[in-house]
Design a protein around this nucleic acid. Structure first.
Lengths: 275, 275
DNA sequence: AACTTAGTTTCATTATTTGGAACTTTGAAA
DNA sequence: TTTCAAAGTTCCAAATAATGAAACTAAGTT
């Protein structure tokens, strides 16, 4: 099952349509037809029809005055379902609240999507805004606490693929810029049970992160507590590790209770005889 | 009413794929292949391939242990872009904050999606009352303040379609349950410039709402202030109408200012005509 | 008015989707 | 264990939808 190498752009019409959605989203601003035509490999007419169809479906939004496309509101509706059903956010919410209150620091809940870190919930040190505007942001996996915490607990096949797909861009002089260096850190993470980000992504930003696992060892996501070097040392931040780990375990246990419990004896009760 | 399908039918492969996404989302829980097969009109093999492709694309998430599908996290990523770029939420945020602070009541920002109300942002009341809404959630248009405020300012063609697509389900004994009754209320809304929801959707919940319009009269969305009959009368709530209308106008003006500057040349050189 | 660029439509060709049916796996009953 | 029905997966010829070069229209520029 699922042993293929084609990264993207496969999957026929649907795959192409998803590519177009990504393209539009990547611009992060209203985008004209000509701009999309340039940034994609699709012929004019083909791209045009994709945009028409996706707009018609509400997956894209079109501004007739400006002649620009943006991702459509239907995605917001669908994502609400995704966030509710398929993310850890609803389960983790009370735990994040508590952790944020106790530490007074920024708390993140993340999951892996296409081998990138997808933040699905967040508590700010300053503002307790609970909107999911923050959710949906993506970041690199190889140089963030949550990213490394998650990668460390992938199975071999998934890890190979994930590790090979990282960009290893040097954000700071502490960024791990090779697969070998990353894998060494992942070994360390597994041995001590938590990950650290010591200014590997942003200067002055440090963080500790723990994976969220099922009892069977399947990796579901990660949580982190982030601090700034201006306000605290790494050792101070690490005092929160036991607490974070405990919260991660609690979320994992809750997730297992909610998502994995098999209640399959529902409709099987009355079985009539059919010959 | 059973959640049967009333999809937009056509649009080829992409439209069908979107239908499948909606179907999965509609279950609001992890769903098995056989359940989807039953609730859709697709042949087995066709549905199977759609699910495979969509899962492969991250638009759906598949749990191999339980053999269930849920909407995928890629939607969350895409929706973040949609929410940021194509909703009024980023523009309206400071205004909602102010309105929420001033009134102390629940404030909603909504837009239309497939002739349903899509809530794109929300501020809770100081004393939160029990209510059904959240960003990304959808609700009926014909019996909510924001819904009627928006419908009242649709153009004739769009209104005809929207009005005919409402379910007119009777939620309370005050719900408008016919297109004629709705249209009469819409006329009233247009004449006074704001909509009310007098316990038409939920008993004890009342609300006033104003449309957000461009200077050209295009309807972009609506905002509302909601209260509870236990804590206030309708007349008390209506004292906020001028304030809400003013905020809606401000958001409309901001939206117009924000949507335009994406072509520097025409935005700066074409200053000849005042609006 | 002529020209340039951006966006839209057409249509014969080609590639993809389609779905009935056969096949394999699963899980539970005999 | 063996048997069986249901659930899930694969196959392939026919049907259909996607394709994209080119022609066309609209909008803006010289």
């Amino acid at each position: 099952m699922g042993g293929e190498q084609a990264p993207v752009a496969g999957d026929g019409t649907i795959g192409k349509a998803c590519d177009v959605l990504d393209q539009v989203a990547a611009f992060a601003r209203p985008v004209r037809f000509a701009e999309l035509l340039e940034s994609s490999n699709f012929p004019k007419a083909t791209l045009y029809r994709f945009l028409q169809t996706l707009t018609n479906q509400g997956m894209l939004s079109y501004d007739p005055d400006r002649q620009t496309y943006t991702p459509g509101l239907r995605l917001v509706r669908l994502a609400h379902a995704a966030w509710t059903q398929s993310s850890l956010a609803p389960i983790a919410r009370p735990f994040l609240d508590a952790l944020s209150r106790e530490t007074g620091e920024t708390v993140h809940l993340a999951q892996l999507d296409s081998n990138q870190v997808l933040y699905v919930d967040k508590r700010n040190a300053a503002q307790p805004i609970e909107m999911y505007s923050q959710a949906g942001k993506v970041g690199p996996a190889y140089c963030t606490g949550v990213g490394k915490a998650m990668m460390a607990y992938l199975d071999d096949v998934a890890l190979d693929r994930a590790a090979s797909q990282q960009s290893y861009h040097r954000f700071t002089d502490k960024t791990l810029t090779s697969e070998a260096a990353l894998r060494a850190d992942l070994d360390l993470i597994r041995s001590r049970g938590y990950a650290v980000d010591d200014e590997e992504h942003e200067p002055g930003i440090i963080c500790i992160a723990c994976p969220i696992l099922t009892s069977g060892g399947r990796m579901l996501g990660a949580i982190s507590v982030t601090g700034s070097t201006e306000r605290m040392t790494f050792n101070q931040l690490e005092t929160w590790v036991p607490r974070v780990r405990r919260v991660a375990e609690q979320i994992g246990a809750e997730a297992q209770a909610w998502r994995f419990p098999e209640t399959r004896q529902s409709a099987e009760t009355d079985r009539m005889q059919a010959t």
